[in-house]
Amino acid sequence: MSKEFKIHKEVVLEGTPEQVWHAVATPEGQAAWSPDPYGSLEGMHVERQEPRRFAVRTPEAENGAVHVFEYLVEARDSSTTVLTFVHSGYLGHDWDAEFDYGELTGHGWDMYLHTLSQYIKHFAGRPAAFVVAEGPAVSATPEAWKTLENALGVEGPVEVGQHLRLTPEGLPVLDGVVDYAQPGADFIGLRTDDGLYRFHERSVMGLPIAVGHYIYRDIDREGTEKAWKEWLDGLFA
C-alpha cells in the first residue's frame, strides 16, 4: 500500500470569500468545523495569501512523515464561494496499517467540509466551540455502536433530512435534523438550533467511539467535554 497520498476536494459554499477565509485561516473559524482547531501552528510552515490561499506544512517526523493542508478560496458569484482543499503527504517509512489512509481520511474530510458548509450557511458569525471526547478502549469494536444508538434513543438507520431527538442520560436532549450520513458507515450527524453534533464509530482504525460537537454559543468547553467523556465512560463501563 502506498505511503504517499493526496486527497483533493472541491466544495461550493453559500458565503462570501471573506467568510470562507475566516473559517479556514483563523483559529476562531477553524473551531467552527475542523477536526483539530486548537492545535498549535508552532513549528509549522505556514503560507498566507489573504484572502485566496492558506497552506500549512507539518515538520518532518522522525519516520519521515509529513502532511500538507492547502485551501484555495475563489468567489463564484456574489453569494457563493468555491473552496478547493488538498491534503497530501507521506505517512512515514514505518506505516503498516491495513486500511487505506487516503480513502478513509478522504471520507472524513467529506464530513468536515460538509460541516464547514453547514456552519457558513446556518451559523456564520456566531461564536464556536469544538467539544470532543472519546469512549474507553472497549468501545473500539463495531458492536459498540448499537450500545451508543440505544443510549441515544435511536432506532434503526438514520437518513439525511430525518428529524431526530437524541436523549443521552444526564446530558441535554438534542433535537434537530440529520444533516449528514455516511453510507456504509456508523455515524450520526445532527444539526440543532445551537450546533452540529457528530457521533463517530472508528473501529476500522482501531480507535474507540468518539463525539465531536461544534456548538455555536458561549459554553464552558472544558466542562462540556468532561460531561460527554463521563457519559461515554459510563456507557461502556
Rank of each mutant, 00 (worst) to 15 (best):
S2Y: 11
E10W: 04
E10F: 03
W21N: 06
A23Q: 01
A23W: 01
G29Q: 02
D36M: 15
D36C: 07
M44V: 05
M44E: 07
E47V: 15
Q49G: 07
E50W: 15
P51S: 07
A55P: 03
H67E: 03
F69L: 08
V73F: 01
R76N: 08
D77Y: 05
S79L: 09
T81N: 08
S88A: 14
Y90M: 10
H93K: 15
D94I: 11
D96M: 05
D100T: 12
G108F: 09
Y112T: 10
L113W: 01
L113I: 11
T115R: 05
L116S: 10
H122L: 03
H122C: 01
G125A: 11
R126C: 01
A128C: 05
A129F: 01
G135S: 10
A137F: 07
V138L: 04
S139L: 04
E155Y: 08
G156D: 02
H163N: 14
H163D: 14
T167L: 12
P168Q: 06
E169R: 15
G170C: 08
L171V: 13
V178I: 15
A185F: 14
A185H: 09
T192G: 04
G195L: 04
Y197I: 03
L207W: 09
L207S: 13
V211C: 12
G212D: 04
G212H: 14
Y216M: 04
D220M: 08
G223V: 05
K226M: 09
L235S: 15
A237Q: 07
